[in-house]
């Protein structure tokens, strides 16, 4: 069911890095079932905004409400049932297998009975389905540390899908991926949004492809959310040329007429 009631409401949220820049105040509402890309130059505050929405950083002032619940008041488990976060990469020296990492997505629904059991009960069919969808079913037993960048990112996405949250945050999901892996990954994400009605907010860098995937763009600049709107109107405005300090050429994609920004 599609409602236009906001899934996420951010009001007057600010955050100050110790001895560093201040983010916000930011106020924005986000209806469910959208793919949002947060764009802006390096250091504009994109990642900070995502970490605030993930409850990893506590806002200095203001509120974040997700699914009708105040983020900072939630327990870790309830929060992780509402919002999942896919990082760019992980650094670990322990050889957990792909399946063990993906299964960690169940942590947010672990009961005390599961915690005491030798083998916690999981829905094996659902796990299989997610591993298939993310193309990981053949890699189940592979140590996570031996994966390529594209595979590792799919594992982290799969764990987030197991979490089964209405809101999914992605931190620059295609950085360091070749075009093949990047498109595979973004197609997966788009399917989550348009088929499963998940809401995705991703920090994103590539202006050429952002309009092909995102429904909505949020533009961050110097810690402020300076503009937001549908991809077409944001990409065609002169704002981005100002912010990035580079002249940009707006095109309609020859096949699907979607907005594309390229360097001259």
């Amino acid at each position: 069911m599609i409602t236009d009631e906001a899934l996420v409401t951010v009001e007057n949220m600010t955050y100050t890095w110790p001895g560093g820049p201040t983010i916000g105040p930011i106020s924005i509402a986000l209806p469910p079932g959208r793919l949002v890309a947060v764009i802006g130059p390096n250091g504009a505050g994109k990642s900070t905004l995502l970490k605030l929405m993930a409850g990893f950083l506590p806002p200095a002032t203001g509120t974040i409400v997700i699914g009708g619940r105040q983020l900072p008041t939630l327990t870790a488990q309830s929060r992780a049932q509402l919002v999942a976060f896919v990082p760019q990469s992980l650094d670990t020296s322990f050889d957990l297998t792909v399946e063990e990492v993906v299964r960690l997505g169940y942590l947010n629904r672990l009961t005390w009975r599961d915690r005491l059991a030798v083998r916690p009960h999981v829905d094996a069919d659902r796990l299989d389905a997610i591993l298939h969808k993310t193309g990981l079913h053949r890699l189940r037993e592979r140590p996570f540390t031996t994966l390529s960048g594209g595979e590792a990112r799919r594992v982290l996405l799969a764990a987030a899908l197991v979490q089964d949250t209405p809101l999914l945050l992605l931190d620059e999901p295609t950085t360091h991926l070749d075009p093949g892996h990047a498109v595979t990954f973004l197609d997966l994400v788009r399917e989550m949004v348009h088929v499963e009605r998940k809401t995705v907010v991703m920090a994103y860098h590539d202006l050429a492809s952002v309009g092909l995937y995102a429904d909505v763009l949020w533009v961050m600049h110097r810690g402020q959310l300076v503009a937001h709107g549908d991809a077409q109107s944001i990409l065609s405005s002169p704002l981005l040329t100002d912010i990035y300090r580079v002249s940009l050429v707006y095109l309609a994609h020859p096949q699907n007429q979607k907005p594309v920004l390229i360097f001259p």
């Binding site: 993930a54 990893f56 870790a76 992780a80 999942a84 976060f85 990082p87 960690l104 942590l107």
Partner: peptide, 20 residues
């Protein structure tokens, strides 16, 4: 035990997975 598995992936990832 499961929370410890999550901690192997780092504090931030463990946080996102629902570990206090």
């Amino acid at each position: 035990a499961h929370d410890m598995n999550a901690l192997l992936l780092g504090e931030e990832e463990a946080h996102h997975l629902g570990v206090n």
